[in-house]
Nucleic acid binder design. Structure first.
Lengths: 222, 222, 222, 222
DNA sequence: GATGAATGAGGATTCATTCAT
DNA sequence: TATGAATGAATCCTCATTCAT
């Protein structure tokens, strides 16, 4: 993938590669902005080049085609996402009680998405096989991680149900993310809190439902 | 739009327009399919015409441009949606206990969306001012209806919180809808049941949470 | 030309033909209006049909194509023009003194063009070989008629000069016609009078040009 | 329009834009030819590109649409025309006796139009608001300049008559221009001479009508 | 490496013309 | 015969991509 010039000489071209790397970052960052604003399909390479402040020719010096930009950008975001997931889905986190678990997982994930708003936008709408596949892998990975967590709270659930609930959780997360990304400051925090509430309620072992159980102080806000 | 001879005699111009009306439905249905698959922007009029089994010229006999197709389709769906909402958000429904209320509201709404899978796809991605505006109005209408319902279960919530929670509910609904639409048969029903569970848990008055309720037999309904 | 059903039966289809003739006139009149407003090339057959209050199919029942409409209309106007010219360029008119001659010729010609404003519009801009040819023939005919008149006032002019001056006269006539058609009432008459003045001055035998006639040595160069 | 980096350094961006500038001239020149031959409306951008020897895309690199080509071309011609008029309608010219005045004004104007045969073709038939407006302004300017000249020769004429005669003169000029442009060499000169003769006769103060000249009482009617 | 120009296939739209009813 | 629908080639224009400098 990339530009095929990965395995070249090492020492001399350093400076050149440095400039190139900068260009690539520049272009990817511009692409992220444009994709985010208009979606992948409606984003023209010329618009990306313009946003990056270079000529279209220059863009094609680093990427063979539009798809490659999305793939590289997607890959990069995906790598960071995986990395972040690796730091988040740790046994020490997953063993915590639910509220803390949720905080431990969601806070970094939300932060990541606020810093990389192009992530899901790109993952979703590209229609590029490569990306779609990687997205699906990421998705599957997330689902299975959620399943793992979930198993603790739903010991009797069958695998199908676990998957189903995990997909629901992921969906709830994504739709809440839209609201989070669309707001800022305290509002944003409030949405994050709502999301956590929903997930807590959804995941948490159902109260014994003792018909008259004399009271259940649900702490409603975080 | 059409032929301006709407208020004429009934019989004579009918036969002529019969074919046309059929074509229009055919085209709108084709457009719904194509929009649904590729999104509005990436859908070509030629593709729509092909899907409808007619030549591009025929399409333009009935619609002045691509936008008009989306507007007509959107308007039609919107009208049906409003109508459906009118029949669903009735006092007699809204006064029921939460589980029945959710059933009464969600079942028709889910059914509608299963029958018109293009609805949200179009509402979202068109970028057409007219549609976007109507979508926003619909959205606002739904939010305020949800707020009304919600007020019953959260008597102490301020207006900002009511709106926030309503938006969350709507988001949860939409993301679940994706899962519902992507599955079928029993699976589909299972997702619908999950959605109802989530909403019930989220909306229901917080149980007093006796810290000691030792067991958690949550009847995992569906 | 026409519709090829000229030599059909005579008695029975009379009524039918009558309706047909009416339709044809209706269409030609509509075409004249549309051509006049937008020029031949920019006029769509659909627009002509609409202006005539019929469907496009009906138009094609009487004319095989757009060109044929222009040809028929042009031919009709041309026929009337020729007829009018025949009544105007009579020896008894041409022998009059210049001012009366000009009146006798121009008045009907101007009147004709005011009644048929599509005439030159069509003649000019069609780009249709058939019409262009007929137009050229008409034009040539007019030129030679003007030459005939002119010879009386310019006995010494060679044939090339006669043709040249005749073309000038025709050009002056046409450009004045634009002004005449663009105005109405007294204004229109005033323009007609100006035109006559110009032509009189241009055609009339050069005043004896007494070389010293206090001031106006007109050298009729070329 | 172009690259917005007009005020940059001189050398570097020059070489790049040199080719572009040439292309633009090439395209405008091709457009002039095509417009001239077929009129604005009937000229296809593909035809212009073909005439310029480039692909349609190249045309659109420099002009956003067909109209812009006409506007740019029209503006360029208009600017040159205005410039030329400024050098022609000078007091020192306008005070000359009529024959010299006519020479001084017409010769450059005719020369300009021979070199820019697209001028009136474009001014007339574009239907583009911008151009039409500029054309009308040019037209009005010419008319008022002619009025100024005319006043000297028709001291008693009222303003309406002055305008009317000026419009006639402009019309005569334009129609003669067609003949001039359609011919070449000596023929062309001969037409120019005819035009001058007509205008001289039309503008020149009516000969004192010395009853002597046995016959040419010019009644300046209107 | 960078630039701006060049390319051409593809998409929206129009319109002369034909066809089924 | 009249109608309105159907057709498809031709237009304008865009954009991913390539090329010369």
């Amino acid at each position: 993938m990339k530009t095929a010039k990965t395995a070249k000489t090492a020492a001399a071209p350093r400076r050149r590669q440095a400039r190139g790397e900068r260009r690539i970052e520049q272009l990817l960052s511009a692409a992220a902005g444009v994709f985010c604003r208009s979606g992948y399909a409606a984003s023209s390479t010329n618009a990306i080049a313009r946003e990056a402040g270079v000529s279209p020719g220059t863009l094609y010096q680093f990427f063979p085609n539009k798809e490659a930009i999305a793939i590289e950008l997607g890959g990069q975001l995906l790598r960071r996402a995986h990395e972040m997931h690796g730091q988040v889905f740790l046994p020490e986190n997953l063993d915590k009680p639910l509220p803390e678990l949720i905080d431990a997982v969601l806070d970094p994930v939300i932060a990541f998405n606020c810093e990389n708003p192009a992530f899901w936008a790109l993952m979703h709408g590209s229609g590029i096989p490569g990306i779609t596949q990687e997205h699906d892998e990421l998705h599957a990975g997330l689902v299975s991680r959620i399943e793992v967590i979930l198993r603790r709270f739903r010991p009797d659930a069958g695998p199908a149900e676990l998957t189903r609930v995990s997909l629901m959780i992921l969906g709830i997360f994504k739709s809440s993310l839209d609201l989070i990304l669309a707001s800022e400051g305290a509002e944003r925090d409030a949405y994050a809190a709502e999301l956590k509430t929903v997930l807590r309620l959804y995941m948490e072992p159902a109260p014994t439902t003792t018909p008259l159980a004399p009271g259940h102080a649900r702490i409603h806000t975080p």
